[in-house]
Design a protein around this nucleic acid. Structure first.
Lengths: 263, 263
DNA sequence: GAGTGGTCTAGACCACTCC
DNA sequence: GAGTGGTCTAGACCACTCA
């Protein structure tokens, strides 16, 4: 492994200092380069979600760096939730197939002491392909008018309707996703996307506001027209900050709230 | 520095294994102990917000461990935003007196491209002492009926009323905070709390829901009665997870939204 | 140039999991 | 007992800041 835009610290043949050649001489630490290489292997599918990646020693040999350097790279990837370390076992690619991580992206929790395990039911109302509207296309980074998959669904918690949302997915990668497949699948959608469509959601950004329920939403969520609802627009990203899903949801916050931690 | 509940790795006199003596033999890494010691120094005020703490080498000598161990402790404290490292200068205690960190806790941003610097104005409507209601006392960890300081205020952004909130502070530490002092102060409240009341906000938890505006809120935020508003309840913690502030805010999300990042 | 944090290495030993 | 990640050390050198 060679340093990028900087000499190795074992030999200093050509000290590429600032303004050497005119281009910006960005210093990139070795462990960042290793991090990028590992990310590339994740992105390319060399190591799939849930799988064990090579040990730190193996990776160190493979990249020609010390174990400590690989370790620091993996530390950061684990902090970003791309990898999961398990002492004595090894390092695994993170996956949405896991009890503990199942609600990493749904921040809605019951008001009550939550000692109760909550029964959650999905209901798919729509699943069809449409031409992307300008705003949707722009957020998903596709061409205006390109095909997208639109899924409309509700979430019932403890028997009550709580979430009503529209999900937009780029048409190409999700070509083969059907309503029938959705109905049949048990488990988080993100787990399905990951196992069958090679798309792992890694990060998301949400824009939250309060809106008054219209007639349609009111009926579906069983609230009066005009009832205040939480509007949550979520854009999810896969490896390499590529946007791959847009969700527009309405949350009924009568008996639930959106929980957030600031630090 | 001696390891806690575990022998040092230089000598192994009494391997305190599981179930040795009946007490839970919790293994605590050295760097965690260092982290706790540094936190204690922050909490005790030995190093105040904005100040430079001793160099890694000095701390290593002081605690009798290697620099690498101190480094790992500081790494985590920096990740938690308790400390800030600056290459070539040293490590500083985080502070709310800083442009970049000023809006770390206010997640409301304008819908527009935000290229514009937003003019923000505060207006204090109330500032008095009251006996804490049961729910407030419970959240702040004080006795029911103890005195708390209640501050009511609005925030105008770009000339429009956007936030209306109630702030509850425990009476004792904020004994000397007056309406007059609030009016006179320029800058974030958290910066004032930190410099004059020795209370630094380190972390917070928010519960968010949507509510319909009542007559009073509607008038203050200049929206129709019944308008959907974001209700944000924030509990802020100081060092050692001690709750020290409760805020109940209503945000008008006509031209702003609450931004959140999931990872 | 002195002092700080930042990176990288090499090697030792510990804690944990699984065979 | 072998193999993994986790901790700790010691030492070297680099990048950056400031006087």
């Amino acid at each position: 492994m060679q340093r990028m835009a900087a000499p190795t610290h074992h030999s200093s043949p050509q000290p590429v200092g600032p303004a050497a050649g005119g281009a910006a001489p960005v210093f990139s630490p070795l462990y960042q380069q290793i991090k990028a290489l590992i990310t590339r292997s994740l992105q390319s599918g060399e190591w799939k979600p849930g799988e064990l990646i090579p040990s730190e020693a193996e990776l160190a040999a493979r990249y020609g760096v010390s174990q400590g350097t690989v370790r620091k790279a993996i530390d950061e990837l684990a902090a970003d939730n791309l990898l999961m370390r398990r002492q004595g076992r090894g390092t695994f690619v993170s996956t949405h197939h896991e009890e503990q991580v199942k609600f990493r992206f749904l921040r809605l929790v019951p008001d009550t002491g939550s000692g109760q395990a909550l029964r959650m039911e999905r209901q798919f109302l729509e699943c069809h392909r449409v031409r992307a509207a300008a705003d949707v296309a722009s957020l998903l980074g596709i061409k205006n008018g390109e095909m997208v998959l639109e899924i409309r669904r509700t979430l019932h918690i403890g028997g009550e309707p709580v979430v009503y949302e529209d999900i937009y997915l780029p048409g190409a990668p999700f070509r083969s996703l059907t309503a029938e497949r959705l109905e049949r699948y048990r488990g988080p959608l993100y787990a399905l996307f990951e196992s069958e469509f090679g798309t792992r959601m890694v990060r998301a950004e949400e824009k939250i506001r309060a809106v008054n329920a219209g007639p349609q939403e009111a009926e579906i969520l069983k609230v009066p027209v005009g009832q205040a609802l939480l509007s949550v627009e979520r854009l999810s990203f896969s490896y390499g900050d590529q946007p791959v899903e847009l969700r527009r949801g309405l949350y009924s916050t009568a008996r639930h709230h959106y929980r957030n931690t600031l630090s």
